[in-house]
Design a protein around this nucleic acid. Structure first.
Length: 124
DNA sequence: CCGATGACTTGAA
DNA sequence: CTTCAAGCCATCG
């Protein structure tokens, strides 16, 4: 039975877990699928904070577990964040390795590989 | 506390 | 069709 301080700590952490939520959703993305920043933002409640999602992913190194940030792109399927990965085309290679076709930083079958976090929430 | 920043999104011209 | 500007809001200095 946790004491009051610990409970409060958890509650506060639950309140400010913007990063954790982003990471949680990102980790749910199946292999070979992608999603958008906005979709994740809506899923965690901050509907208009798509920028925050990307910003949180920027600090994904601070996450305890690995976060497949390469599976998150902008709503058009453009690999806007590829420059933030180590290699210039690391993100592209990772995605292509999962069967996603990319050309000029643009995911070709974006509507096919798009994965909606909300859909997964319904199942759970 | 205030202003700047950002891996975005949306709607209007 | 393309281009542009404004809104968004959690961090950081």
């Amino acid at each position: 039975m946790p004491n009051l301080c610990y409970t409060m700590y958890l509650m506060k952490k639950e309140e400010n877990n913007f990063f954790e939520k982003v990471y949680e959703i990102a980790r749910l993305i199946p292999t070979g699928r992608v999603t958008s920043y906005g979709a994740i933002a809506r899923c965690i409640g901050s509907a208009q904070s798509a920028r925050m999602v990307g910003w949180a992913l920027n600090k994904c190194s601070s996450a305890k577990e690995y976060v497949p940030a390469h599976r998150v792109v902008n709503r058009t399927g453009l690999l806007t964040g590829k420059s933030h990965f180590d290699g210039s085309n690391l993100m592209k290679e990772l995605l292509e390795n999962e069967g996603i076709v990319i050309e000029e930083n643009q995911i070709i079958d974006f509507d096919k590989v798009f994965w909606d976090p909300m859909k997964e929430m319904e199942i759970v």
